[in-house]
Design a protein around this nucleic acid. Structure first.
Lengths: 390, 390
DNA sequence: CTGAAAGCGCTTACAG
DNA sequence: CTGAAAGCGCTTACAG
């Protein structure tokens, strides 16, 4: 917005109490404010202008107004123009509630997440939601935010969004194997897509990042640097994509070592900074000979680095650390974090797109996988002058 | 959810294609699935059950059903019971669209933010939104997410949410002085609250953190540590709360020094990690004698620490750094960041609460300020064996 | 304490 | 190409 525009808007909207500031400009603008052509939006309490008013002014029926509103080709250009002018003149804005009630859809979708406290305070969800919202806006869908609680699931209220006609479709984020309620949506015929997780046991529509491919790149890179004693901080074992990363870790390391890596090289980090910090502590207390750590997400990686710093072990000289996700601040950690980039924003965009196409009748199965790639920064180095085997 | 529950839900919802897995359990459960008493939610395409159906079954009028639904005291306990049973039996769910159209409100609010790309990928917004959503859920309001673009403002479409009856009120986050459109809401009589910023020039309702108080604590702490040559990385100059922090910095430092600190001790960091990193670079190139830096938010502080690390200047030994916000990862930075805690989650909660009370008729002005406090961690130390004045 | 009727503001067959 | 009428599924005076 140019400053000029701002001032104009301000002047139009300013309250009497503050109107004395800068009288020159205000006078100028306010004389133009009640101009003939300017739309007069209904104040609350005042009567909303409806199709009827428009119809009267344009000398047509309400039906015709509605058809014009919906770009029906059946209306002659001349009446169309007349109707549009009337709408303009009255500042007519179609009531979406009424439209929704008549049509059979709402042009609204919901983002559904588990009610972790401070759920959105997380870049992980933030990126996904950003992508969803941007795409939804482009497709002229509105988006609702819905937190699903254990209690709401138990009472089967998670279907309310559909049953009470709030939305046409739902995008589910942050779910794991415990969330059997997800299957209720397809079972009832309601459009749903699982975002950035998938469920082999339920065969749900989903859009995910390629965690397996990313983990392979990360492990290969560590191998190339000469690392063999590699620990892992795992995320939730109830999330398939998290298990995928562990599987790759186990398989590739097993191949390189010639035998399965010991289970004690793995620790659960709960997907949090604190968890990652604690896990790193347990891991290195038990196995000081580890030269590298793969973490299931960046938050755990940052927690691990925090521990290592405090414990006086230098990253990457003593221990290399690799994260997963490439959150915005990974690049600004000390040292900057080597991590697998997951295109979460794009996952959001694509899932929104797919959901809308499903809503609009497309019945293809949705199994989208977006590529990931390793981003090498400064938290990894050659496995070097390291402690002898303990 | 207990595992048992999950399994039950799964079984109910499972598709034929996958139904062969674990036949024993499925058989058990599926025989119970079509039980008599269970509600039969309308499938899409199938007829939705309406007040009329309930009325018929309960042998009353639609009016009565509606009154029961709205807990009117005018209905006798006996018919009330009868109607409720009918609703239960039919799995009746009131259509919210129809309710909204009849009533004069929607029980929906919108969170409005500027369309920064990846807007939500930020803990700052995340905390606020979490607070808003939690409170809204408790108050039985739904929340919509709306990104406002320069284009939508120019076409005055930001009022659409009200004019087209999407929402009853709006919460505006992330705005600055350029966003004159904010005044349009109160001017049109629409409930709006500015969240975590305020606008002396427009006198809008708002809920904010006490940035001034927080900045005073931070500066006093630095003074106590012996710092005098303190640089500042500023946020946007178009945001009042950001200006408040700069004002405190200038005023208190001026008092201590006996004269205004040089303008060259300040640099703009654009509220981002990268900006903070660059600003720190410019600042210390010009003024290597600075012993401390106050940053307008944590992201800039982390950027500054990243620069200092790279430049071989140790935090806090050589340079102390103080942030603002206390984002979740501040505690896990290396070193852990000393910062001013801003209760963003609570700001979200309170603004939602105030908005709803405004919607429900309360006309008091809203000027809420929530206390902030300094959190001392490891990025600050005594101004010690430092370079002589240059 | 309960019901018949009108209305919320659109859309959609149907008829012409 | 256009309109009268019914309908979406509720709520709300109003009457009794």
């Amino acid at each position: 917005l140019a400053p000029t525009n701002d001032k104009l808007e301000l002047a139009l909207a300013v309250r009497p109490a503050t109107a004395q500031a800068d009288p020159g400009e205000l006078a100028l603008v306010s004389s133009g404010a009640p101009a003939e052509g300017s739309p007069a939006p209904a104040l609350p309490g005042g009567k909303q202008v409806s199709v009827r008013e428009v119809a009267r002014l344009a000398q047509v029926s309400a039906t015709t107004v509605s058809l014009v509103l919906n770009d029906s080709p059946r209306i002659s250009p001349s009446t169309q123009k007349r109707v549009r002018k009337a709408m303009e003149q009255l500042g007519y804005r179609p009531n979406r509630l009424a439209q929704n009630l008549s049509r059979r859809y709402t042009q609204m979708i919901a983002i559904m997440l588990p009610s972790l406290s401070h759920a959105f305070a997380d870049r992980y969800f933030g990126e996904l939601i950003s992508g969803i919202c941007d795409r939804a806006a482009a497709l002229d869908y509105k988006v609702m935010l819905e937190q699903v609680t254990p209690e709401s699931i138990e009472r089967r209220r998670h279907l309310d969004l559909f049953e009470r006609r709030f939305v046409d479709g739902v995008l589910c984020l942050g779910n794991g194997d415990r969330h059997g309620f997800l299957t209720d949506f397809p079972a009832a015929g309601y459009p749903m897509i699982a975002v950035n997780n998938y469920f082999p046991q339920w065969d749900l529509d989903h859009v995910v990042c390629d965690y397996t491919g990313g983990a392979e790149q990360a492990m290969n890179y560590l191998f190339q640097l000469g690392h063999r004693r590699i620990g892992m901080i795992t995320g939730s074992s109830r999330v398939q994509t998290a298990r995928d990363v562990v599987d790759v870790y186990q398989r590739t390391l097993g191949e390189v070592l010639g035998e399965a890596p010991p289970a004690t090289w793995r620790e659960d980090g709960l997907f949090t900074e604190q968890g990652g910090m604690d896990a790193a502590g347990r891991l290195l207390a038990r196995h000081p000979e580890l030269t590298a750590i793969l973490a299931g997400n960046d938050k755990m990686a940052l927690g691990a680095m925090h521990y290592l710093n405090q414990a006086g072990r230098r990253v990457p000289h003593d221990v290399s650390v690799v994260g997963f996700d490439d959150m915005n601040d990974a690049a600004f950690a000390n040292p900057a974090l080597t991590t697998v980039h997951t295109p979460l924003y794009q996952v959001g965009v694509l899932s929104c797109e797919k959901l809308v196409s499903r809503i609009q009748g497309n019945t293809d199965r949705i199994r989208s996988v977006l590529a990931t790639h390793l981003v090498v920064r400064n938290s990894t180095a050659m496995a070097g002058a390291v402690t002898p085997a303990s």
